[in-house]
Simulated assay, not measured.
Amino acid sequence: MSSSTTASELAAELREGIAAGQYRYGTRLPGVRGLAEQRGVSQQTVAAAYATLAALGLVRTERGSGTVVTAGRAATAHLGAFSPPNLAVGKPWRADDGEVSEETTLVRQLPAPKYVQDWGISGEIVERTRIRRVDGVPVQHKLTVMPYQVAARVPDGHQGVPPMLAPVGAPPLSPPAGVRVADWLGWDVGDTEVRISAEPMLSAAAEALGVSEAAPGFRILNITRDGSGGTLYATVTTAPLHHTVTMDIHG
């Protein structure tokens, strides 16, 4: 850990320690000054990291008693497995009221970072970012990553740039009504794993949503795999904690 460590990075490290049982329930964490000296960071960085953990309900800070861990080891609450008969009838997102809009803000090709490799995607990837708004206010940041060879697929008879490689500002390309994008592009979709958690926001999501870096938010990770178990693509949707995460199952 160096002086260049951000509050977000420090909070993430401490959170991983709590989730793994390294810092047990009821454990008193080091004081702000002591941890700052130990890690070679400013006291402001430590205080901000502790504030983030407190906002997530992982620690409690009280004057005179310090910062105490208030969470146990991480546990997964699996809700079950579902096989809707017609995924095409579902909408990817909606709002209870207000004017809904979204736009692509970034499309780029790059080597897969480590966190993407952890999702089963390696080599050259394509990264796409979309911002979703209600009444013009940003409410969701959606990151989609996929292997380049998956992004380069085109529908039968399509001419021009593959839809997943269309640059920012290009006219949107959509499948015919009632057809999923995956079916339109000929992807062999096997299953999708969904992980919903409360996490410090990544810097890009925080900036897009207009909140402080490392502010807590919902993180919805979808990992879609093909019939042989390889990862086709993954999406990470970030939303502020005061929002509600919903899902419809048809049939």
Score class of each variant (00 low, 15 high):
A20K: 12
V46S: 11
R63Q: 15
Q38D: 13
G66K: 04
R33N: 10
A71V: 01
I18L: 00
A36F: 06
G72I: 00
G72S: 09
G34L: 08
L53G: 07
G72D: 06
G40M: 09
R33Q: 14
A49K: 05
E16T: 13
V41M: 09
G31R: 07
V69R: 00
E37G: 09
R33F: 13
L35Q: 02
A47P: 06
Y50E: 04
T61K: 00
R39M: 11
V41C: 09
A48R: 15
T27E: 11
G17V: 10
T76D: 13
V68T: 09
I18Q: 00
E37D: 14
R63M: 08
A20C: 09
A51F: 04
L58Y: 03
E62M: 08
G26S: 04
A55M: 13
V59S: 03
Y50F: 12
A36Q: 09
L35R: 03
E16W: 08
L56C: 08
L56K: 05
Y25M: 10
A75C: 06
G26E: 04
Y23P: 03
S65C: 06
T67H: 06
R39N: 07
T52G: 07
R24Q: 13
L56V: 08
I18A: 07
L58K: 03
G66Y: 06
L79R: 13
T27I: 06
T70H: 01
Y50A: 06
Q22C: 04
G21A: 08
R33W: 11
Y23D: 04
T76V: 15
R24C: 01
Q44F: 09
T76I: 14
A20N: 14
A36M: 08
R28N: 07
V32N: 05
A51Q: 15
A49C: 07
R24G: 01
R28G: 10
V46T: 13
L79D: 03
